[in-house]
Design a binder for these strands. Structure first.
Lengths: 233, 233
DNA sequence: GTCTATATCGGGATAGAC
DNA sequence: GTCTATCCCGATATAGAC
């Protein structure tokens, strides 16, 4: 049943690993061929060139995440649970495809210069899905009105960074500079906790004020205005 | 007074830009020389090789951030204000040296494989400084006890990602896929707001308890244990 | 300190046999 | 579909004149 991967699939699998490890430029077609246990010519038989191979990989990876997040939007749970599910999906996706975080970071560092419109569209879909969850939360009064893009970066960036930085964390830990070892799942749990706390709508607020001005007068307290413009308190 | 940069300085300045734009491997010594308006041989006169040049740049960049964060730790303000200052410092540093975010992301994606112990030590210093701020906040009861590393990634990753992703955001905005344009300073303001909200110590809680077991036995809402292990609620 | 060659090699891409 | 052999450019690093 485990269908033997066609040479094309073998190339794709090898290429993801090489592109993630060395970047588009750093990855060599020779190394991809070697890892796929094929020869270089086979790659040019299946793909126009190195760039076409690269783009096919990116599109595939982001499509999965776009579809998973779309399913979360459509699910029938609370906005809070959807945010948690979004973080879980992103994390488990990154764990299942360990190359995703580095690929994404590299392409961004390369000024996204290789992303064509179709690929951009797919990536934008992920953002729009998170935005849909947030909007639902805003309307239902479950979330305070934060800027959706900021929320997006607050969720996606740490998730990718933490995983991509595993070797860096390991090196620092090994040298006794800081204890940075942690399970990816544990990180996601902490992130969910923090993200939901940051999104929490103004507490019970109305009538239920059991203990009057909960906040000391001198404490400015985080304002909950629409944070689209970054005005300071 | 604006001292004409020595050839060595010119090389360093050109190299940062090239390394940030293309990565260690992608950057060419020829391009660095061209940008510095010098010839290639001058680079090998001042530096042993491409790697030595690269490492000198990384050390310089992270040292600045380490020192700035150390000054914040030592300043006499509240933990909340120190967190805000840390985020501002990181943001303004990234704005002043637009190459920092991409350099950092690239080196992480490269599995930090080129970082030698001295450089790791400098980078760890930045984390330890944030940790010191958090510890102070924990002790004073200003912050709930979150995992310091998670907090570190929640602050650093979005700050770097947002800035490095400027071209990607611009491309998506231009194509009408999403409006992602935003001033870096506005982003930092939003991030501060969110981070402080996530760190806000548990409200007076149920019984309006003024003192004593500040924590509910079953720990309902955000659990405030030292979140080193990521157990779920 | 600054320059112009140049040695040398790795890597993308192709030709063409089987 | 799969392979070997090869073209050829670009990139690191050095030699050596001024």
């Amino acid at each position: 049943m485990t269908r033997r991967p066609s040479s094309r699939d073998a190339i794709l699998a090898a290429a993801v690993a090489e592109f993630a490890a060395h970047g588009f430029r750093g990855a060599t077609v020779d190394a991809i061929a070697r890892r796929a246990r094929l020869n270089k010519a086979m790659i040019y038989y299946h793909f126009d060139d190195k760039l076409a191979l690269y783009l096919e990989i990116l599109r595939g990876i982001f499509s999965v995440m776009r579809d998973r997040s779309a399913a979360i939007v459509a699910s029938s749970t609370t906005p809070r649970e959807k945010i948690a599910a979004f973080i879980d999906a992103l994390g488990s996706e990154a764990d299942a495809r360990p190359h995703l975080p580095r690929l994404m970071m590299r392409e961004i560092a390369d000024d996204a210069r290789r992303l064509d419109p179709p690929t951009l569209r797919i990536m934008a879909g992920v953002f729009q899905n998170l935005r849909a969850i947030l909007d639902e939360g805003f309307e239902k009064g479950a979330f305070r009105r934060v800027n959706p893009m900021v929320a997006y970066f607050q969720i996606v960036a740490p998730t990718l960074f933490f995983r991509a930085a595993a070797p860096l964390r390991e090196a620092m830990s090994r040298q006794g500079l800081a204890e940075l070892r942690m399970e990816a799942s544990a990180f996601s749990e902490n992130l969910k906790d923090s993200a939901l706390q940051a999104l929490a709508a103004g507490r019970p607020e109305a009538g239920t004020r059991a203990a009057k001005p909960r906040r000391a007068p001198e404490a400015p307290a985080p304002k909950a205005r629409s944070a689209t413009t970054g005005d300071r308190p």
